[in-house]
Design a protein around this nucleic acid. Structure first.
Length: 611
DNA sequence: GCTTGACGCGCC
DNA sequence: AAAAGGCGCGTCAAGC
């Protein structure tokens, strides 16, 4: 039995009680939270409006445990059901997640209104109940009509998306929603609160000591002015977006952590300059302070909903970080108090499993590169392997600097990076400055030592034209993906899409492969080439492997970050669950059986300790 | 006063 | 011949 549902609730933007100002979790757990009613429909039945009172009766009388509950952005409705009505679904389905998976970046966004337009359905209505705490009978009637139409739209959109949504994905989508609506992890509120206060003090002190306001350092206009006024030369770079009338990139100051010239400024020996640059970084790094404060306030209200978005990375179908419970869990600072504050409940232990070099392994086995495969199968350290060849002497884990260089090369050069970008990457990731000659040597060494990788780029480059064949004949070329018109089919049936793929003349009149994607509601052109096809495939396949493990570990999984799984185990079952996690994460996928996988599995009372 | 774009920061 | 990419969030500046 399917139940389609959409809740209508009170909000007031004037007092900042709405989803623009606070997260879904804070909104629903707030004492001001109030349900006006909901539109519901079983299967194809007419949609009914039930007001707040009628809903109480309905949920008391109806057992939905074996029901599939479907909604647009179901984490919202699911959290209301679970937290206010104590109602859990047998399975949750989110039509917004389905839309990301099926339509991807070929559509400007995945709102109900946009989807209605896309599928040529009767448009979504307009209604504004902002600030209304009680409704007149007339207002309730209007809200009911509006809501009923939304549920009808949701159902019709579901009926259309269901055709192309792979069956294998329902269980994973359900898991991601359960991680949110049935949260199991705790947040250490005092720890987070202290951290936020301390970080605020630390940052404030920096500006107080210099005697210049934070706003000067935080401003991309004022900070370069300050530097030049003090007699320093401001480095520049090309803006990625801003263009002049001729379409040439405009120069903007290069004063960010990702700009090698900025790092040079800090290290050129001028103490005053160093102080100013450090203040710049302090002004721009707000994550620790703001995130710990937000998580502290979430932690006060209950367990921590783990929020990731299904197919949020809609090119490769990996998860993206959600914002429903204190901010994106995918970018918690490594080794920080944010991870330390995420705790297993009493009597439980947190297990963290991390796939070892999963993308590198996929690259190795797809390209069948003998050097890479041998290193993997003999458990050799690939970073040392490359560094030894580069430096012409044996490098071991003890040679930290050299090994770090090897790691940067191995992880960076697999998708076609050139020598110029590699200089920058090495500077940013290792702090070292290498010459053009050294960079060219590293790039050449990578491409000759693991020569099957560039061979695969070349092959994939030549297969791009097959994606333009409207006949849509499946071709596999010995890879676990199928090439169809305009898209690559992953083993799950999810598609990596290249909408409107075509040949265009680029710089110097060279023909290039171009496709269109919507980013932030705007249509943008993207280039396509062999290295990038390989990257998309590797990321997509890595995501599928991770999902296989999630499926196997079922409801033990309480969180997921890229190649990492968070699992909760009762203390009594710790030993057996550690083994279970390791097995689930080292199973070779059915579509690349010869590939050897590995995972690091640790445990502890909190996320930091477990990893 | 509000929205939008641009940039920078954090993670993999 | 050569080409690394993708998320979410906070803040400032410009536009209305």
């Amino acid at each position: 039995m399917d139940l389609f549902i959409d809740f209508e609730t009170y909000f007031d933007s004037q007092i900042k009680y709405d989803l623009k100002h606070i997260s879904v979790t804070e909104y629903i757990r707030d004492p001001r939270f109030k349900v006006f009613g909901a539109g519901i429909a079983f299967n194809g039945d007419p949609v009914k409006w039930l007001n707040s009172k009628e809903l109480n009766v309905f949920f008391k009388r109806t057992n939905l445990q074996n029901c599939t509950i479907i909604g647009h952005n179901i984490k919202f409705d699911g959290a209301i059901l679970a937290w206010h009505y104590n109602v859990l679904a047998g399975q949750w389905i989110d039509t917004k997640g389905m839309s990301r998976a099926v339509l991807g970046k070929s559509i400007k966004n995945h709102s109900l209104a946009t989807l209605a337009e896309h599928f040529k359905l009767e448009s979504k209505g307009h209604l504004n109940t902002n600030g209304k705490l009680t409704l007149t009978p007339q207002e309730e009637k209007e809200l009911a009509d509006y809501c009923i139409h939304d549920v009808e739209l949701c159902r019709e959109i579901f009926d259309r998306l269901v055709i192309d949504f792979p069956t294998s994905e329902y269980s994973i989508m359900d898991q991601t929603i359960k991680m949110f609506v049935q949260p199991k992890l705790k947040l250490n509120v005092p720890l987070l609160r202290d951290a936020s206060v301390e970080e605020a003090k630390r940052r404030a002190n920096i500006f107080a000591e210099i005697g210049i306001d934070k706003s000067v350092f935080a401003s991309n206009v004022k900070f370069p002015v300050l530097l030049s006024r003090e007699g320093y030369e401001v480095p520049t770079k090309e803006s990625p977006r801003k263009k002049d009338e001729q379409g040439n990139s405009l120069k903007i100051p290069a004063l960010a952590l990702g700009d090698p010239d900025f790092l040079e400024l800090m290290e050129n020996g001028d103490e005053r300059l160093k102080t100013l640059c450090e203040a710049r970084i302090a002004a721009k790094s707000t994550l620790l302070e703001t995130r710990s404060a937000k998580l502290a306030s979430i932690g006060q209200t209950g367990n921590w909903p783990f929020d990731v978005e299904f197919s949020g990375a809609d090119q490769t179908h990996r998860f993206s970080g959600g914002s429903g419970a204190g901010g994106n869990p995918q970018n918690f600072t490594r080794g920080s108090v944010l991870r330390k504050a995420v705790e297993a409940p009493e009597g439980f232990e947190l297990i963290v499993g991390d796939f070892s070099n999963i993308e590198l392994r996929i690259q190795a086995y797809l390209s069948k590169d003998p050097g890479l495969i041998e290193a993997i199968e003999k458990n050799r350290d690939i970073y040392c392997d490359f560094a030894s060849a580069f430096y012409g002497k044996t490098i071991t884990k003890a040679d930290e600097k050299e090994r770090r260089f090897g790691k940067t090369a191995i992880l960076g050069l697999g998708y076609g990076m050139g020598w110029l970008k590699f200089i920058k990457t090495v500077r940013l990731q290792t702090g070292e400055t290498i010459s053009e000659e050294q960079s060219r040597k590293a790039v050449d060494l990578y491409r000759t030592r693991y020569n099957q990788i560039p061979e695969l780029w070349k092959k994939l480059d030549s297969y791009i034209s097959k994606l333009c064949n409207p006949e849509g004949i499946y071709q596999e070329f010995g890879l676990p993906v199928k090439f169809v018109f305009g898209e690559l089919l992953l083993p799950s049936g999810l598609k990596i899409r290249f909408p409107n793929l075509r040949r265009e003349l680029g710089e110097r009149n060279q023909p290039e492969w171009i496709y269109d994607v919507y980013t932030k509601g705007h249509l943008e052109k993207r280039k396509l080439y062999g290295g990038k096809v390989l990257e998309n495939i590797c990321q997509g396949l890595a995501g599928e492997i991770c999902k296989d493990s999630m499926r196997e570990l079922e409801d033990l999984v309480v969180g997921q970050v890229h190649d990492e799984l968070l699992i909760l185990s009762s203390k009594g079952l710790l030993a057996s669950n550690l083994g279970r996690v390791k097995r689930a994460m080292t199973n070779s996928p059915s579509w690349l059986k010869e590939m050897k996988l590995d995972a690091e599995v640790g445990h502890g009372t909190n996320w930091l300790e477990a990893k």
